[in-house]
Design a protein around this nucleic acid. Structure first.
Lengths: 277, 277
DNA sequence: TAAAAATACTCCATAGGTATTTTAT
DNA sequence: ATAAAATACCTATGGAGTATTTTTA
């Protein structure tokens, strides 16, 4: 049922040495034990990992893949255990998530000044999955942009920002200083859901390549701007709300404190940024 | 020694239900078994995970943390096993890593056109760890920027780009069109190693906040530009080499093919971009 | 034929089961 | 008084050991 990490460690040793005997030696177990364990692992996974002859042991493609995956698995597990120990020793952690284009570092600095002992970790969210990490515990607090699914979440609006159209620099509409929805009628709009195109950067690549245009919040345009793309305000587009968000059942002191700090610090961000223009 | 994923799964069930009996029921095991396994897990980890009374089971802070970590661990393991199965079924994968600011999507598109069945995954590298993922198998091929440790790697130079100074918009030197090293004498330079400041975005936040200036490759300036920062060429700074890189022992057909495509596609990128200016 | 993996078997640690006790509300 | 976790004790699976066989370069 569950992957056995001991067997995975054994397998990694064999893959590394290309030799059951020497791997067994390094693992301080007998060679036959290792043979059996690897066979068992192959059975559990339902695929052959090693091509054995009596003179050599070679990885199959699946074995190669598992060997590469093994590092990641152990790194993840070790980090998880380490963080649990840290918490047990009294270290306080706070994972702050933020949507692409939004900046939390100012809030983090203000919070850290008041709570120097809290270890902060940042989590860069993606378009399509803004809320899930807050609900499932991967992040304690988030700085998000509407819309998102707010069930089970406490949402504190802190500001709003206009939407801009992102166009190739050579696009006819790029000459205009500002646009309306009517101007964009008939343009191919790249929807976030249309492609499984992950990052903002990828989307902008598509636009630059002439595959379409997109409506993005102003802060995204600012943060990921490129010389071959232009951004034009769409005057009748509804502005986007930015919010600080926590799971409803989070009552930890440091989390509530961060929300308070973030509300103060991030609240006037749109105004501040606008002044820079 | 190794964390036992079965015990972790059991723990997650108890954490979810807040009740040993119901968790045991859901796991199709007897309640005393569960009690013992959780105790064993606590012993192995060396910390208490649950505060038990006969009427309620509550998570300790360490338990809370482990419950949150559990999702990530299982997600990692499941994804690893899934990818191994895919490879075993004959799916070809190619993980392409790229340094911040560099764009590989054009090479990816060209490669995908020729090899539609190869599943491509992108890996966004960080400043300080460009080469390791290529050496340890996390990525098959990379698009990097000098300098990096090239031991065990095959390096194909494909272009070079100038370095620019990144300054706050309000900085006195921002009025100048171009700079020399002599102009920057005495300015506080933010080194990548100075702070453990992870992302490019963070570094730029620090610059915007007036903590110093930085020298960055032109493509980084382009991709992460902000209205409150300006970028000025430093005429006597040595240009940065960009390279396509693979581990020396990689001989897979699809990897070599990608290198060839990337060499063609990315080779003239600086020229192309320069033309846009 | 020799080096290396696989098989045969034995032993014991531990997961899992049932019956019962302890404990806090 | 009672619901729920812990303990006691049993069984059996499977991990680890040693001795031996099989395999192929």
């Amino acid at each position: 049922m569950d992957l056995d990490l001991r067997k995975l460690r054994y397998f990694a040793a064999v893959a590394e040495h290309g030799h059951f005997g020497r791997a067994a030696e390094q693992l301080y177990i007998a060679q036959p034990v290792l043979s059996r364990q690897i066979r068992a692992l192959e059975q559990e996974l339902g695929c052959t990992l090693l091509a054995r002859t009596t003179r050599s042991v070679q990885l199959t493609p699946a074995g190669e893949q598992l060997y590469e995956e093994a590092r990641g698995v152990f790194a993840t597990v070790d980090a998880a255990v380490r963080r649990v120990h840290e918490i047990d020793r009294g270290v306080e952690r706070l994972v702050v998530a933020f949507a692409p284009g939004l900046h939390v570092s100012e809030a983090v600095r203000a919070f850290t000044a008041a709570h120097p002992s809290v270890e902060i970790e940042l989590l860069h969210l993606n378009w399509w999955e803004q809320d899930a990490p807050l609900r499932d515990g991967r992040a304690h607090v988030g700085y998000l942009r509407q819309p998102f699914d707010s069930t089970g979440l406490r949402v504190v609006p802190v500001g709003s920002e206009p939407k801009v159209a992102c166009l190739p620099a050579a696009h006819p509409l790029a000459r205009r200083r500002s646009l309306t929805w009517a101007d964009l009628d008939g343009e191919p709009i790249l929807d976030a859901h249309a492609r499984r195109t992950s990052s903002v950067e990828e989307k902008f690549e598509l636009i630059a390549a002439g595959h379409g245009i997109a409506m993005v919040p102003q802060s995204v345009a600012r943060s990921y701007s490129r010389p071959d793309l232009v951004y034009r305000p769409v005057t009748d587009a509804v502005p986007v709300q930015t919010c600080v968000v926590v799971a409803e059942d989070r009552q930890e002191r440091r989390v509530l404190d961060f929300v308070a700090v973030a509300e103060r610090t991030l609240g006037d961000e749109p105004a501040r940024l606008a002044a820079v223009d």
